[in-house]
């Protein structure tokens, strides 16, 4: 299985995936990718490329090669199976009046 964005031997520096946390209490979200010679420089490059307008308070970088992705051609089997299975959503439950803030 190939890694997303991998251009193989044409790369001089390895590819890194960048995740930003926009503010305290939120999760890190994928922001994009970049090239860097190592993880330390990847964090710095991410700072320059993805936090120019105050977008983040925390940066994670992950080698793109460490990510295993789902097969883009297997969309049907992977993502259309939940169709028609509305019982997986919590809409059939009745909320108890004794429990506030649900």
């Amino acid at each position: 299985m190939t890694s997303p964005g991998d251009s193989g031997t044409r790369e001089i520096w390895p590819l890194w995936e960048v995740f930003l946390r926009p503010s305290r209490g939120l999760s890190h979200v994928h922001a994009g990718s970049l090239h860097a010679p190592d993880s330390t420089m990847a964090v710095r490059n991410a700072r320059d490329l993805y936090t120019r307008r105050g977008e983040g308070v925390s940066i994670w970088v992950v080698p793109a090669s460490a990510i295993t992705a789902s097969d883009p051609d297997a969309k049907g089997e992977f993502f259309e199976s939940p169709e028609g299975k509305e019982y997986r959503h919590a809409v059939y439950y009745t909320a108890s009046e004794a429990v506030p803030h649900l």
């Binding site: 001089i12 520096w13 090239h35 490059n45 320059d48 490329l49």
Partner: peptide, 12 residues
Amino acid sequence: APELEEDVALGN
């Protein structure tokens, strides 16, 4: 610069 990312770093 050696890479696009370094163009941006030096430019910044």
